[in-house]
């Protein structure tokens, strides 16, 4: 390695000394920059590579004028190990070869030369299909249009709009139904409970000073209210007392005003 470095320094030194015989080295596959390479005569340029057989790839970085020629900064990639003539890869801009210019570059490798595997041969594949894009766009457009027409012409018929929800029976409608059932004497416990709650609710709504009270506070007042208490207290006795003296027949006359067909009638119990 030290020898290679020394050799590189020596070659660089030689290049700077404008010696037409240039020698340089570079590791295989890695770029090496050669600066101020003096080549007498007209401008030179890398010979375009038309195949993959070349051992060097040269890039021209900079051209600086010099006496009777030019100095060049080059970047060289070595593709094959060994010593190669730079002049074989350069020519004058008018196409003449650099016959008098002797410059060598050694492409080094750490591997023995015969042990390097040959590069994999490239097998360029032909693209499957090229072109036909306009045709494809046309086909897709037709398909999209057909789909759109199908949707327009055969679209699913919307289900009929749902029937308007049946309005919740009002407190008075519920009361009317329950009182009617009570008059027939077939009021189960659930309905009796609902009847009692609705009577309480009816009076709570009816009396303005009770509307904003909680049911508990409203009920305490209803039990002493001159209009509401007769029915409320008798309902309590009928529904909750252990041995009620009252029967549904005693309650019915009190409930009768609540069996009305309209709210206005109920409001005058």
């Amino acid at each position: 390695m030290n020898r290679l470095i020394l050799l590189f320094i020596f070659l660089t030194f030689k290049a700077h000394c404008s010696d037409p015989t240039v020698q340089s080295s570079s590791p295989l596959g890695l770029p090496t920059t050669i600066t101020d390479l003096y080549i007498p005569g007209a401008k030179v340029e890398p010979i375009p590579q038309k195949n993959r057989e070349g051992s060097l790839v040269i890039r021209l970085l900079e051209i600086k004028p010099a006496a009777d020629g030019f100095r060049y900064d080059l970047e060289v990639y070595g593709l094959d190990p060994g010593t190669h003539q730079l002049s074989a890869y350069l020519h004058y801009t008018n196409g003449d070869a650099l016959s008098a210019f002797d410059s060598q570059i050694e492409i080094t490798t750490r591997h023995p030369l015969d042990s390097l595997p040959p590069p994999e041969a490239l097998k360029p594949n032909d693209p499957d299909r090229l072109g036909g894009y306009r045709l494809l766009i046309l086909i897709l457009s037709i398909l999209w249009l057909l789909g759109f027409l199908i949707i327009l012409l055969y679209r699913k018929k919307l289900p009929p709009p749902p029937a308007p929800p049946t309005p919740e029976p009002t407190l008075h409608e519920k009361l009317n139904r329950l009182v009617s059932s009570a008059s027939k004497g077939d009021l189960p416990d659930n309905d009796r409970a609902q009847l009692e709650r609705l009577i309480i609710g009816h009076w709570k709504q009816k009396l303005p000073n009770l509307q904003n009270l909680s049911p508990a506070k409203a009920l305490i007042q209803l039990r002493t209210h001159p209009d509401a208490s007769p029915l409320i207290l008798k309902l309590e006795q009928w529904l909750h007392a252990p041995n009620p003296e009252l029967t549904h027949k005693d309650i019915l006359p009190l409930l009768e005003p609540y069996r009305a067909n309209s709210k206005s009638q109920i409001e005058k119990p």
């Binding site: 416990d189 659930n190 009796r192 409970a193 709650r197 529904l239 909750h240 007392a241 252990p242």
Partner: peptide, 13 residues
């Protein structure tokens, strides 16, 4: 203290 069936319904409600 007596608890009627109707009162039970109120509680459950």
């Amino acid at each position: 203290i007596h608890v009627s069936e109707v009162l039970l319904k109120h509680v459950v409600d």
